Computed example of a mutant assay.
Amino acid sequence: MVRVGLTTERLVRAGAELADEVGFDEVTVTALARRFDVKVASLYAHLKNSQDLRTRIALLALEELADEVADALAGRAGRDALAAFAAAYRDYARRHPGRYAAAQLRLDPETAAASAGVRHAQMTRAILRGYDLAEPDQTHAVRMLGSVFHGYVSLEAAGGFSHTPVDPQQSWDWIVDSLDAVLRSRAAH
């Protein structure tokens, strides 16, 4: 019998909240059952297993992040679009550390192709159109932006910048300016 009030969507959202609280690696069906004060077996009417839960949280996180980035990009181009994209990405990672970690989950190819990850790639390429990059430079730029943004927010979340008097926001702005300069110079080639 399915417990009244439990739905797959409600469980996934609660799992995402749990991920933000305790870390994505700690999210399991058992932990979620404790949160709802129900037996683990009662959740299997909605979820296959912990991997299914983790995949659904990853898909939710990718969708949320894509929505926030799309809102931030609306009406922007060039450096302004790059900065808005970067800020939305960083802000999401700071507000939702567990969900951000979930968004990094490696998905099987079929799931990945149907996920909001495709929207992320499309939005990144839309920003890069403002820099007039041809292939393969555009693909290199997509990888560079993803690597730099992910690396920075991961180091920042781990406290990697707490030992210096320089404000991390100043470094972030310097990085965005540098990326903009690199992209403009590559387009000139």
Rank of each mutant, 00 (worst) to 15 (best):
V4E: 12
G5T: 06
T7P: 09
T8C: 10
L11W: 00
V12C: 01
E17A: 04
E17L: 06
L18T: 03
A19F: 02
V22A: 13
G23Y: 02
E26V: 00
A31C: 01
L32I: 01
L32H: 00
A33K: 00
R34Q: 11
R35E: 03
F36H: 09
V38S: 02
K39E: 06
A41L: 15
Y44R: 09
A45G: 13
Q51R: 15
R54G: 07
T55Y: 03
E63F: 01
E63S: 07
E64G: 00
A66L: 14
A66C: 13
E68H: 04
E68N: 05
A70R: 13
D71F: 02
D71S: 08
A72L: 06
R76F: 09
G78I: 05
D80S: 15
A83Y: 11
A84R: 04
A87N: 13
A88L: 06
A88F: 04
D91K: 03
A93G: 09
R94S: 03
G98Y: 02
Y100Q: 01
A102K: 01
A103P: 03
L105T: 05
D108M: 07
E110Q: 15
A113H: 11
A113I: 13
A114L: 06
M123C: 01
L128E: 15
R129T: 12
G130K: 07
D132S: 14
E135D: 10
Q138D: 11
T139M: 11
A141Q: 12
G146E: 11
V148T: 13
Y152N: 09
L155G: 09
H163F: 14
D167R: 10
P168F: 10
S171E: 10
S171V: 15
D173W: 02
W174V: 10
W174R: 09
W174Y: 11
I175Y: 05
I175V: 15
L179W: 14
D180R: 11
S185Y: 06
R186D: 06
H189W: 12
H189K: 13
